[in-house]
Design a protein around this nucleic acid. Structure first.
Lengths: 343, 343
DNA sequence: ACCCCGATTGTGAGCGTGAACAAACGGAAC
DNA sequence: GTTCCGTTTGTTCACGCTCACAATCGGGGT
């Protein structure tokens, strides 16, 4: 039976069907599909015609089974709702596509090690060939480093001091540039609204800020700490507005800067007339804050792309040393910064 | 050879290895793994122990090959960098996970039909069982409807008048509520900054706005058109600031509202003193605009979740009629709206 | 005319799993 | 003690593809 059972519901055509229609063996079809050499052009054409006619599509599971390659990469991401992570994911996906890979995502509920473990396991169960982790928190990265058995892993957006390859923006030099920029405008010192503890970005940006101040011989004020949210920036801003001698603030990200701007506005402290503000990230909205925000741009898409390149290289086989790619951020000057008032 | 070749690099253990270690047949291992009945508890325990000892993980490709189910769903998304799409993706992923599916993403370069076709094909080649499309533009949705052969498709975020199941926010009633809100505050009429043509959201929100005006017997001003970006909102705002008689503006999204707020600010038109502004979406930043933005909240995560539920139901088999889920949006009152000034 | 070699095509095996069927087991009913 | 039936386990096959190898074809050299 089989061939003559012209069942009404035609099952998906398989390679053998194409072969029969083209009058060749299934192996020849396979050769055409995989671009193998030694196929006579005429034969190839007949096979391709048969493929089109049947609308045949190779079964990826069967292929994966025999080649042991799923053509799939996994992405673990944490707050994928935010602009940064979302952009990195986007960059990763595009790069993966052009490298011939599919992308499967697993988002993290929380940042504890168990949750990371779970996400990575999930992806491994699916048979991904490699994993990109978008999880900028110290704990997540170290959790991943522990887990990384048997599947290559690359961290992106952070994790510069872990045992796995990473791609990040140079947070330290970005923060330094921002701080120096303010000092150059004549500010005696620069206050800092940092990100939450445990995030490498927070640490690095804070360190860059501190270093710039010290290099200039400026006093180092107490650090305010937020949680990246506009709300936390707002609250910090209310506190700072009451402080004496604050003329410049470097915020660890644009969202907190947004909240800070509003708090200063409501407290009657004009920006930049009274206080200058700098952010970090350059989210698309930053140019439309009131006033437009001077900030440090990171190219998240590029980060994602580079991370994927790194992963693909690693998959390539020749195991190179653990790579640490750092991308230089770029200062974007807008109207939230100005010269220190003579005071 | 084979069994005695204790190769240094141990290959991934397979079911047979587990079976041998546990002293059972591979089929029994399979039964344990799939929770099949009729396995003696003692046997199950031995198998589980063997699985743990070898750190065995089932080969998903082999399973997919034989069951013809990949346990994978695809997501096609367009501007996945924006808050809305990113949140929907997040919601989809979470829901998929708890339904036992993996999620594979394919982002669109552009919104033409060819590009959509390409993305869908890509996912089908990967063997996804169903697809969620996050692509709120008319053309994309209709392209998908054409393509949807052989794989169930659900559209989310838009597409309320297509031939495929959809999950959306009720844009019309949201826009109506926003407009009515402004009219109730005493404004003679409400101007509208619409989204770009070709987007269903734009159309529906504009229609809701118009309907509310007509219901109140208010004049219907010319519509300004933006492209969702803050920049376009800014430009529209500059134009509106020069117009006579503008006391209230309903923007089709929060980003444009942000730009509009800045333009009004720079033109010396206080909000809400001179002009009231309402947005749509309630992005997390909206509460920290200057002034905080009154807007219409959509729960993007919920949209994603519902879309996935719909898709899973469709996969369930019993083909139900084409579903149209609409979620009610919610007005969020903040300080960007106030009573019309007398005069 | 015959042999050799590269180009081209076909054949068979096996990837790791689940499904169908068969076999073995063990207790209850007679 | 025998029969019957439900529980438990094993055997065999197929899923659709790629890989290794064998077979065939065809032209150039001798």
């Amino acid at each position: 039976m089989g061939s003559e059972t012209a069942g009404l519901e035609a099952r998906q055509p398989v390679m053998a069907d194409v072969a029969k229609l083209a009058g060749v063996s299934h192996q020849t079809v396979s050769r055409v599909l995989n671009g193998a050499p030694h196929v006579r052009p005429g034969t190839r054409d007949r096979v391709l015609a048969a493929i089109r006619e049947l609308d045949y599509r190779p079964n990826s599971a069967a292929r994966a089974l025999v080649t042991r390659r799923s053509q799939t990469l996994g992405v673990v991401s944490f707050e994928s709702t935010l602009y940064g992570p979302a952009s990195m994911l986007d960059g990763i996906e595009r790069a993966a596509r052009s490298a011939g890979y599919f992308v499967s995502v697993a988002s993290l509920r929380s940042l504890d090690s168990r949750s990371v473990q779970e996400a990575v396991d999930r992806l491994r169960d699916q048979g991904v060939e490699g994993i990109v982790v978008i999880a900028p928190q110290t704990s997540a990265v170290s959790a991943v480093a522990k887990v990384s058995s048997s599947v290559p892993v690359v961290a992106v957006g952070s994790g510069a001091r872990s045992s796995i390859p990473t791609v990040t923006v140079d947070n330290r030099s970005g923060a330094e540039a921002a701080t120096r920029q303010l000092l150059d405008l004549g500010h005696r010192t620069v206050h800092h609204l940092a990100g939450p503890g445990g995030w490498l970005e927070s640490q690095d940006r804070q360190e860059g800020w501190r270093r710039a101040l010290e290099a200039a011989g400026a006093p180092v004020p107490t650090v305010a700490v937020g949680d990246w949210s506009a709300r936390s920036g707002y609250e910090a801003g209310q506190r700072m507005a009451r402080l004496e001698g604050v003329t410049a603030v470097f915020c660890a990200n644009d969202h907190m800067a947004l909240g800070l701007l509003r708090a200063l506005h409501e407290s009657g402290r004009p920006v930049p007339g009274d206080i200058s503000v700098v952010g970090f990230d350059d989210i698309p909205e930053a140019a439309y804050f009131i006033p437009p925000l001077t900030t440090v741009r990171q190219d998240f898409g590029e980060l994602g792309r580079r991370a994927l390149e790194l992963l693909v290289a690693e998959l390539g086989g020749t195991d190179q040393p653990i790579a640490r790619v750092q991308i230089a951020p770029e200062m974007v000057l807008r109207r939230s910064t100005g010269p220190a008032h003579r005071g």
